[in-house]
Every structure is written in C-alpha cells, then in structure tokens.
Amino acid sequence: MTKWLEEHMPKLVLAPSFIVVLIFVYGFIAWTAWVSLTRSRLLPRYEIDGFIQYDRLFASPRWDTAFTNLFVFGFLFIVIAMILGLILAILLDQNIRTEGAIRTIYLYPMALSMIVTGTAWKWILNPGLGLEATVRGWGFEDFTFNWLVDPDMAIYTVVIAAIWQSSGFVMALFLAGLRSVDQEIIKAAQVDGIPTWRVYTAIIIPAMAPIFLSAFIVLSHLAIKSFDLVIALTGGGPGYATDLPATYMYTMAFSRGDIGQAASSAMIMMMVVFTIVVPYLYSELRTKDD
C-alpha cells in the first residue's frame, strides 16, 4: 500500500488541480458556450436554439460600439505603448547613471489597480476642475480639453490612462531584450563605423523580434480584459460611448439580467483572445518539446 502510494504520489498531487481546471475552466467555458446558444434571459435555459443570441448581439448598436471600441482602443493602446516602451528602453540603455531610479518611476503604475489609475485620470481630465481649468488659469482662456465628456473622444481618454499604466512594463521587457542582444556583433558594427541609428534598426531591433511578440501578446490580452479601467474612468459613458465587450458582458450579466447576451458576448471575447494567443502558445509549447 505504501509502495503504491509512493509510486502514484505525483499523480495524486496533480489530481485535484487537474479536476479543478477541467471543471472551472473548461467545464465553465462549455457551459457558457452552451447557454450562448439558447434563449436564456433572466435564468439560464438549456434548450439549444441556434445562433439567436449572436444574431441579437450583432444587431445591437451598443455591442457594435463596444466591439468597434475594442479595436480602436486595442490598436492605439498596443501601438503607442510599444513605440513609447521601445523609445524609453533605448534612451535608458545609454549608460544612464540614475537608471535604477528612473526605471522605478517609469514602471510603478503597473503596480496600481486599474481602479486607482481610472480614479486619478478621471480627476485630472475633469473638464471643470482638472487640466482644462488649470491651463485656463495660466492665461490660456480658450483652452478646452473635455474628452472625458465628449462621446466621440472619451475612448481616447481610456487609451491615455492605459498607456500611462502599461508603457513602463513594455519598457522593462524591451530593456531586457536590448541587453540580451549579442554585444560582439554590436562592437563589430561599431568598429566598421556603422552609425548608431543603423545599428539599432538593422541589428538590435530585428534581433528582438520574439520580445515584440511577447509584448504584443501581453498588451492585447490587457486590452481585451480592460474592464476596471473603463468602469472607473468613464463608467462606459457618456451614454455607452466607451463600452468595451468586457463592460457590455458585465452589464448584460449583472444589471440587465440577460444571460444569453452575456454568454454570447463572453464567447466572442474568448474567440478574439484565442485567435491571438493560441498560435503563440502552440509555437511556445512546440519549441520547448524539441
């Protein structure tokens, strides 16, 4: 008996986690997928009824706004955070004496809750008392910055706050990447008299391709999950101008009592995540097995 126990101990240790993951991740995804194919409203129903919820979803102007916002927000957030992160990393990589302190300053927003970030930026961007009033107080009477309450511009305030929070993290990733590039090649290029900017564009940045991919994966994952930030900064408003799929799903699930819509919007979110993450994970796991 003890012998059997000793032999199977590794499996016994993994078993609870295995069961938990099967139920609470995969079983739950299956449940949500199933319910998204029914006419569930306030309570879940289990008779499959085709793609009616998805039809409703794509006919809804609110979902249309949320889905468009995801791409506008996601695109701007990812591209600007990557560019900013790369610039910061290159600037910091020039033998800066106070590098440690500067890095700490650039990265600290990542330790904050998105609710805190949203609260801070909501105050700064407050049209009546925040940045706008401050700049007017300096004598620029015509200065206006009311993006927070402008339905067409409010989504960009979410972009600003998200970049503030995450660009330092991208910098940290890129800085690690810059330092992993083979120094011999760089020295050789310098001896050959190749100008600095060419060393970066032709040697260092191409060598960091895997880091760009990692940063892209992490940022897109953050973008799709951005729920807290919108709730704290704009509450999805004005109206539903800054809704994202995540806030749409939450509203349907917990305030509208429309489980069918909540389930189908969650499934769409998962599909967006998977089209980005699955190829990445697949290649990661495969190269590891070699």
Binding site: P10, K11, L14, S17, F18, V21, L22, F24, V25, Y26, G27, F28, I29, W31, T32, V35, P44, H221, I224, K225, F227, P245, A246, M249, Y250, A253, I259, A262, A263, S265, A266, M267, M269, M270, V273, F274, V277, L281, L285, D289
Partner: peptide
C-alpha cells in the same frame, strides 16, 4: 514527468489566458 504531465501543463497554461468573463456566469451559480 509521467504520461499526461505535459498535457496537464498545457491545459493549465491555456487557462491563464482565458478572459474571465467566460467563467463569470457559471461561477456565480456554482
């Protein structure tokens, strides 16, 4: 390492990336 340990790890890793919205409703019921 035993047969299935890698599969277990892949399943877990995958679970890191799901948007939690997809488990909110069943979790509330559970």
């Amino acid at each position: 390492r035993f047969k299935g340990a890698n599969l277990f790890f892949a399943l877990m890793l995958f679970g890191c990336f799901i948007p939690f919205q997809v488990v909110l409703l069943p979790m509330a019921r559970m």
